[in-house]
Design a protein around this nucleic acid. Structure first.
Lengths: 201, 201
DNA sequence: ACGACTTGCAACACTGAAGATGCAACTAAT
DNA sequence: ATTAGTTGCATCTTCAGTGTTGCAAGTCGT
């Protein structure tokens, strides 16, 4: 019988010490998997186990299958993602401030869990739902920004959102620099672009 | 003995008709592979063959290995990529015009050969070199644009280029609309952003 | 010391895909 | 009609990755 895994939060456990030991192992594996898979999505369980410093069998005891591992990564990263968005209070803070805060917080998560987040939509039902919800919140934030005169009225909101996501993705790729600085550059580029305002027409 | 493949341009062939038959098959396979692999990079040779309407053995006769197939895709797409850039004459046309032209041309290629281009850097030596060369030309174009006052002086050229590439990637993802329209939106966003100019500081 | 738990190791079975091969059938040029 | 070339089909081998299990050794709390 495969170990159902500590992913199930409701699992009762006898002793404190043993439980935290197991959880530490799980965390180590998740982090190693993110490290390895972000570089090579086709990496084997063996490579992941090696990067985590454990035997391959241990990985299989904690995660019933490869898919289960990826789903667990997605779930874990999505939780951190939601926290990152929540802590910026994007519905109550002024749009521009919220944009900076959300961006900086999300960048911190995305830099460490890029692969897991990229798989969240397909690997885990709950994670996909959370991502979709956050997408909705992003739409609402952009709508508020437009009302506040921060966003141009002649720009398709969906396009604006896609550009925003693309810039986050691009920024998270190169892990250089502080998240706040990166966020500032990102938002600056998103809103003002890289040009002087001169156009063809 | 595996068929060395029509990728070798110097291979002499007896008859015209037979040669073009073989080339047609190769093209069909390359296009099918792009279609299948862009949706699922882990797709099997069987799925690729099926999409191409040929037997799997035929694919193996034309391409010695899976890697060889991907390398051929990269090579083919890279050739079209280089043509797309060349035909825009980015070194002689005014920067802003060149930017539009290059963008539209490249989008046309990237929409059809997104997967192949994404693998060009790793799958094929020559393709990687061409991509690097084009990267250099992009840098020079951006430098000219900056001198012409089209690009902001306070923006890191490397960052501007990364944003440009990210926008091309994002735009190519959704195949909706004409390449010229997409290019116009892309360049507009690249230069002006999606904001009104209002900033926090 | 005892018991609960976890881990590493070795070994195993299973699967899917890759790659190769021989042969018959077809096509097109001569 | 002959011939070169190409393809489909059936078949085979090989191999890497996955997932499982039993057991000995280890840790940690009691």
């Amino acid at each position: 019988m495969p170990y159902s895994g500590p992913m199930n939060e409701t699992t009762p456990t006898r002793t404190r010490a043993l439980r935290s030991d197991a959880e530490r192992t799980v965390r180590t594996i998740l982090e190693a998997a993110e490290r390895v898979l972000s570089q090579n999505p086709a990496a084997s369980m063996e490579q992941i186990a090696e990067a985590a410093g454990v035997a391959r069998t241990t990985v299989h005891r904690r995660f019933a299958s490869r898919d289960a591992l990826v789903a667990a990564m997605a779930s874990w990263a999505t939780r951190r993602f939601a926290e990152a968005v929540d802590s910026a209070h994007p519905e109550t803070t002024p749009p521009l401030v919220a944009l900076y805060q959300v961006t900086a917080n999300v960048l911190r998560v995305k830099i460490d869990w890029g692969f897991a987040m990229s798989r969240a939509m397909t690997a885990d039902r709950d994670a996909a739902r959370v991502h979709a919800d956050i997408g909705e919140r992003c739409v609402r934030l952009f709508a508020r920004a437009k009302e506040a005169g921060v966003l141009r009225a002649d720009v398709d909101p969906l396009w604006a959102q896609r550009v925003y996501y693309a810039l986050i993705h691009e920024t998270a790729q190169s892990r250089d620099g502080d998240a706040d600085v990166l966020a500032a550059r990102l938002v600056d580029t998103l809103l003002r672009g890289v040009g002087t305002g001169q156009t063809l027409t």
